[in-house]
């Protein structure tokens, strides 16, 4: 658009120099402005408003009881047993989800890095869970765990893992494993894809040299594959941890945080507080707490990465 104003220059001649100033200062922003405006209006401004909510009483069910309350919400949070439980559950949920996703994803990536018959089709089929809408993965797994229509409780009972075929989503001691299983199923393709890309960037000569020198597959794996993947693993695990800690859909659909808050993680707690109780002030307070925890985590991890990975 800006080029229209400089159109009266002779074709090809000096336009480049004349509009240099415009090109390097204004033009990029013409391409960027819709994105910047939308992100600003829909994400950054609400983010600031959200932080300000945490210092206010905003309860849509009690509209006349609103106003600034200072740190009252935070004091309430400090004494909220549900918050500490949710924090504990978030750690449990994130840790086991990411551990299994990573291990299974690494295994899948290494398999896909070898040759076998029907690889293209295999790859398409095992990546399919990634494309399944999350609400649907949640419902599907909730149904699989339901003894009325799902086979899992019967199989688990047959294996002796359960005393009788009942729904583990209703058992406070085991309920969290339901959403974790669904999350593993949904997340393995992501890890596999990312790690596969990294694996393919390892120079093949290294493996050939290792083979010539008579290295065992295990030695090749620990001495070549893992060190090469380490930076990628570190950054993927870090980003994924944050993403999973924020990921509320699966738990919300499968258990709604129950039974007895045994599957309530911070993000579902935020959502249920905002959505069911319409207590926006308190929901924002939990959200700010979650944000701070994630920030601290990210800083620690970045620092560790700087110390450990010398690149």
């Amino acid at each position: 658009m800006i080029d229209r104003t400089t159109e009266n220059v002779m074709p090809g001649a000096t336009r480049a120099r004349r509009s240099l100033y415009l090109q390097y200062l204004v033009e990029p922003f013409l391409y960027l402005s819709p994105a910047i405006i939308l992100i600003g209006a829909v994400m950054m401004v609400p983010l600031i408003i959200g932080v300000s909510y945490s210092f206010q009483a905003i309860d849509l069910l009690r509209p006349f009881d609103s106003g600034w309350v200072g740190l009252e919400n935070y004091a309430e949070l400090w004494g909220d047993r549900k918050f500490w439980l949710a924090l504990e559950n978030t750690a449990f949920w994130t840790f086991w989800s990411i551990t299994f996703q990573f291990l299974l994803g690494l295994g899948l990536a290494m398999l896909l890095n070898t040759q076998f018959y029907g690889k293209k089709l295999f790859q398409a089929l095992v990546f399919l869970p990634w494309a399944v809408p999350t609400f649907l993965s949640a419902l599907t797994w909730a149904w699989l765990f339901n003894p009325v229509i799902g086979p899992l409780p019967h199989w688990l009972a047959a294996l002796g893992l359960l005393s009788e075929p009942y729904n583990i989503l209703g058992d406070p001691a085991l309920a969290m494993w339901g959403p974790i299983t669904a999350n593993i199923w949904f997340g393995v393709p992501f890890f596999a894809i990312t790690l596969l890309a990294a694996l393919q960037s390892i120079p093949g000569e290294l493996f050939e040299a290792a083979e010539v020198d008579g290295a065992t597959p295990w030695q090749t794996f620990t001495k070549i594959t893992l060190p090469f993947l380490a930076p990628m693993i570190a950054i993927t695990v870090m980003l994924r941890t944050i993403w999973i800690a924020n990921f509320a859909d699966l738990i919300f659909v499968m258990t709604g945080g129950g039974p007895a808050n045994s599957t309530q993680i911070l993000s579902t707690y935020i959502f249920t507080t905002a959505f069911r109780k319409l207590d926006f002030g308190y929901a924002s307070t939990i959200a700010v707490a979650l944000l701070l925890i994630l920030l601290i985590y990210a800083v620690i991890l970045l620092w560790l990465r700087k110390k450990l990975v010398k690149i």
Binding site: I39, V42, M43, M44, V45, P46, L47, I49, G50, Y53, I58, L239, I242, A245, N246, A248, S267, I270, F271, A274, F275, F280, A283, S284, A287, V288, L290, L291, L294, A298
Partner: peptide, 17 residues
């Protein structure tokens, strides 16, 4: 940063807006 922070954080402000 927008990819990092909990999106649920802005669910209440967005609802109000």
């Amino acid at each position: 940063i927008t990819q990092m922070f909990p999106l649920l954080m802005i669910i209440a402000p967005i609802y109000k807006i």
